[in-house]
Design a protein around this nucleic acid. Structure first.
Length: 694
DNA sequence: ATAGGGTTAG
């Protein structure tokens, strides 16, 4: 009986004969607004025949998951007269899927107080909530309750227990449950495999999968997606092909998820051709398919290809998301193509996406690597949430631009706001010190790294220190530093010292280091180039030539110098002595003009860097056609006076090109920004931001 | 009525 003063009550029944029932269920399925839900609520109260378990369950889950209104669901529940276990389970499930899974556990407490016992449905809902909350304590409590109730033998209970343990990082407990079970289904195997992948044991995951393939069970798409992600992480191409054959042999249905995971796997394992073939054969693609290609190519260093895929994505009319944009920005950063990077920034603004988080960090990195350090700083300052990545990108950016002091200021700001630096932050800091010759500060930071911040220096940090000391002329200290290193010095560490030998003309030490380097990486040309540079600087031309000859005899492939310049969104690429550009004639005419203007201004070529034992005139000629000069000449004839030129070079700038560029910046009144392998050079009015310290 | 799905940086 319902009095007019108390709220109307709902009495659930198991009567499924009401003709209105399918209609109300359909309305609940489609319900998207609170208004609509309230109307349905009224209908249910008015019509007793609608008060069935199924309707109440659907009503609660709609209120909880679709509309997220926990209060409303609870007040609805309180109207149910004598709620049974089914009704409690419905609420617990609803809460476990909601934004506030804790409610699920609290509500379970109420249920126990009312004298109800959990059943094989209650436990999986609760465990899902525990997994969501990463609360091992509560999870273990439910584990012991399910043992007491004998529910632990239920395969659903067991699988959700395994999932809960895996999510909480206790793969051992998941494995134990798995080993002890007498009935394992595909979900049990998949859950165990996933647990290993998510906790950083992809090898173990594959082991478990191989074990499973010995049983009668056949994997489905969901299992394969996880197995494929384990393969990507391992980067083992042979294994990839085996797993791919398993999919074909067992006729696992290739849905979009599996196809995307396959594309991702092939790219991460470096088989770009297979990835492209698969991708092109896909009948339907979603944004993740495109993202897998773009990010995968970026990670493989195929930046131009990544941008080409982005263009076809746009032609295809697919809408990019933030992951796409991060990949595109990353490629822009690596290629140094500012125009496209700016376009992405404008796109982000237009879409009303905040330049924060991933996107913000990618923008900071892009602007810094494209030479617009001020823009990078602007984005950085506007970010609401700055994390270690943001600070590290900014610090590394400033370091690259030779703004050592500003980088160090930012580092102090980091500790002021309580942001803990990590290993990569210190690479930025040490590089900053190195580029501006702040030796004392560098030593201090290196020490603080382990003493104050409890971070273990890695080989890269030792490399930075050798560079810092050697570059500043503390050669014997650098040698001593290498001797005392707790880890075996690698090619980068020795390379840094060899670089110092070039700057400071240390021929004998250079020879010793060269011997070591040739042992460590005999195929690398950089060592030989540096050594012949060292000889040349000491005017030992004969030796310089000998090294060059040795290179030729070893049939070493030299990395060809290459410079990029971006004009109106088009990337122009020049190699040394390149004559393939449509404007070659004009470019070389401009080069001649540059050289004669420079000679009038008193320029003398640094022929020693030409490293060729040929007539002086020829040496100068060879230098003239270094790729960056072609790019600069092309920039000069293609832009209006005063436009800054931005060049990206794959190798270090040679000292002759460095002084030529200084001259050009003065004579032609152009700001020229060159990014070389190591850092940025801002040329303006005849001098360079690196203050010739590079 | 219940459990397992791919891509995100310095």
């Amino acid at each position: 009986m319902t009095s007019s003063l108390s709220p109307p009550a709902i009495t659930p029944s198991y009567d499924f004969n009401s003709p209105q029932l399918p209609f109300i269920l359909h309305r609940l399925e489609c319900c998207k607004s609170m208004e609509e839900l309230k109307q349905i609520h009224a209908c249910i109260i008015k019509a007793r025949p609608l008060q069935t378990q199924l309707v109440l369950d659907k009503f609660l889950s709609c209120a909880l998951s679709t509309l997220g209104s926990l209060d409303y669901a609870q007040s609805f529940f309180s109207q149910i007269r004598n709620p049974n276990l089914y009704a409690y389970n419905a609420v617990i499930r609803g809460f476990s899927r909601s934004k506030n899974p804790m409610q699920s556990l609290l509500f379970y407490g109420e249920m126990l107080e009312k004298g109800f016992c959990p059943d094989n449905f209650t436990i999986p809902f609760l465990l899902k909530a525990c997994a969501e909350l990463r609360t091992l304590r509560e999870g273990e409590g439910i584990h012991s309750q399910s043992i007491k109730n004998g529910l632990v033998w239920d395969v659903y209970v067991r699988n959700t227990l395994m999932r809960m343990y895996a999510v909480c990082g206790v793969t051992g407990a998941a494995q134990k449950l798995f080993d002890e079970s007498c009935h394992r289904d595909l979900v049990s195997w998949t859950t165990l495999i996933q647990g290993y992948v998510e906790n950083g044991f992809p090898g173990q995951a594959i082991q478990v999968f191989l074990e499973m393939s010995m049983t009668k069970l056949k994997a489905d798409g969901k299992t394969m997606v996880i197995v494929l992600s384990a393969c990507s992480e391992l980067g083992d191409l042979d294994l990839c092909r085996k797993i791919h054959s398993y999919i074909q042999d067992n006729k696992v249905y290739l849905d979009l998820f599996v196809e995307n995971a396959l594309v991702d796997m092939y790219l991460k394992c470096g088989d770009i051709d297979s990835a492209c073939r698969l991708f092109n054969s896909m009948p339907k693609k979603n944004v993740v398919s495109w993202n897998s290609m773009i990010l995968g190519l970026t990670q493989q260093g195929e930046f131009k290809e990544a941008l080409l895929v982005f263009r076809s994505m746009q032609r295809d009319g697919a809408e990019p998301d933030d992951v796409t944009l991060v990949g595109v920005l990353n490629s822009c950063a690596n290629l140094g193509v500012l125009e496209l990077g700016k376009w992405v920034h404008a796109y982000v603004d237009r879409k009303g996406i905040r330049a924060d988080g991933f996107i913000g960090n990618a923008l900071v990195d892009m602007y810094a690597k494209c030479g617009s350090i001020d823009q990078a700083f602007g984005v950085f300052k506007n970010m609401q949430h700055r994390d270690v990545y943001s600070y590290t990108s900014m610090i590394a950016g400033l370091a690259m631009h030779g703004e050592g002091e500003r980088a160090l200021d930012l580092f102090s700001e980091m500790s002021r706001v309580g942001m803990k630096p990590d290993e990569v932050t210190f690479i930025g800091i040490l590089t900053a010190c190195s580029h501006v010759g702040l030796v004392e500060e560098g030593r201090q930071y290196f020490e603080d790294m382990s003493r104050v911040y409890k971070l273990k220096p890695q080989i890269e940090h030792y490399g930075c220190m050798v560079d810092l000391l050697g570059r500043a002329g503390f050669i014997s200290e650098a040698e001593e530093f290498i001797r005392k290193m707790p880890i075996e010095p690698d090619a980068f560490v020795w390379g840094a010292l060899l670089g110092a030998c070039r700057i400071h003309g240390k021929v004998e030490l250079g020879e010793r280091i060269m011997k070591k380097l040739v042992e460590i990486e005999p195929e690398k040309d950089g060592t030989f180039v540096l050594m012949s540079n060292i000889y040349a600087s000491a005017n030992r031309w004969r030796d310089a030539v000998k090294v060059r000859k040795a290179m030729k005899e070893r049939k070493m492939k030299k990395i060809p110098g290459c410079s990029l310049i971006e004009l109106n969104g088009m990337v122009h690429e020049f190699r040394k002595g390149d004559k393939s550009h449509p404007k070659t004639k004009e470019i070389y005419k401009m080069l001649d003009e540059i050289m004669s203007r420079l000679r009038q201004e008193g320029y003398v070529a640094h022929t020693m860097s030409a490293l060729l034992d040929v007539a002086e005139e020829e040496k100068e000629h060879a230098l003239c056609h270094h790729s960056e000069r072609l790019a600069i000449a092309f920039g000069l004839i293609s832009t209006s006076p005063g436009t800054p030129l931005r060049i990206v070079k794959n190798l270090r700038v040679c000292s002759d090109c460095h002084s030529v560029t200084k001259f050009i910046s003065k004579v032609f009144r152009r700001e020229i920004i060159v990014r070389d392998r190591n850092r940025f050079h801002h040329f303006r009015g005849g001098s360079c931001s690196c203050k010739d310290f590079w």
